[in-house]
């Protein structure tokens, strides 16, 4: 999928030109977040900050800022809309693939940029947990992450296979697994064969 073609889908264009919950230094002077998370580095061309207001483990409001490309802006805008009203545990387990799907998929070379928002959100939740003496609470309970770059777990692979993925190609189509550094391929293929054997 071509970047420009993607950008011109109405949803993406809307989120890029009119991003939701983006921090506005004038309007949001009084926004007092309970936790903040920052990831990325301007040196590499992108950086993201997520700010959360949390009450009884429910995310009540969010703001974010970014030095990033259109994909980062659109994805984070969509993510920010999704997590308001969510339990921090559920928010922690949101997968970038879900956000990408809601934006109608993502061009492959833009995945790196679009996961930034998701990472910043987790960083903010981690900070919050730490502040409340609950450090690492969600880390171990989550399914086992197979693709670190895209945060794709064994559960995701299982689900993709149940939905019809039956080889590496169709699994990648469904999940984008292994499209960043590629180092997860061996492990992912092993699981794929296992699940295809069970469900196939």
């Amino acid at each position: 999928m071509d970047v420009f073609q993607w950008l011109y889908s109405d949803t993406v264009k809307d989120h890029f030109t009119n991003p939701r919950n983006v921090y506005d230094p004038d309007r949001d002077k009084d926004f007092r977040p309970d936790a903040e998370g920052m990831v990325g580095n301007i040196r590499c061309g992108d950086q993201m900050m997520f700010m959360l207001k949390i009450e009884d483990d429910i995310i009540t409001d969010v703001r974010w800022k970014t030095y990033g490309c259109a994909s980062a802006i659109a994805s984070t805008s969509m993510l920010s809309e999704t997590v308001v009203g969510m339990n921090i545990r559920d928010a922690y387990h949101i997968r970038p693939a879900d956000i990408a799907n809601r934006l109608g998929g993502l061009p492959e070379n833009k995945i790196h940029c679009s996961v930034l928002g998701d990472k910043a959100l987790r960083a903010a939740i981690d900070v919050y947990l730490e502040q409340h003496g609950r450090a690492g609470e969600f880390k171990d309970e989550s399914a086992q992450i197979i693709c670190k770059c895209l945060n794709i777990s064994d559960k995701d692979i299982e689900e993709a296979v149940r939905q019809g993925a039956h080889d590496w190609y169709t699994l990648q189509e469904a999940t984008k697994i292994g499209t960043v550094c590629g180092s997860c391929k061996a492990k992912a293929e092993e699981l794929l064969h296992e699940f295809v054997h069970i469900y196939g």
Binding site: F4, D46, Y67, G68, C69, A70
Partner: peptide
């Protein structure tokens, strides 16, 4: 500075 090039490019393209 402060604005990322691809975002500028795509905004102009729009």
């Amino acid at each position: 500075p402060g604005a990322e090039g691809e975002s500028i490019l795509l905004s102009l393209d729009l």
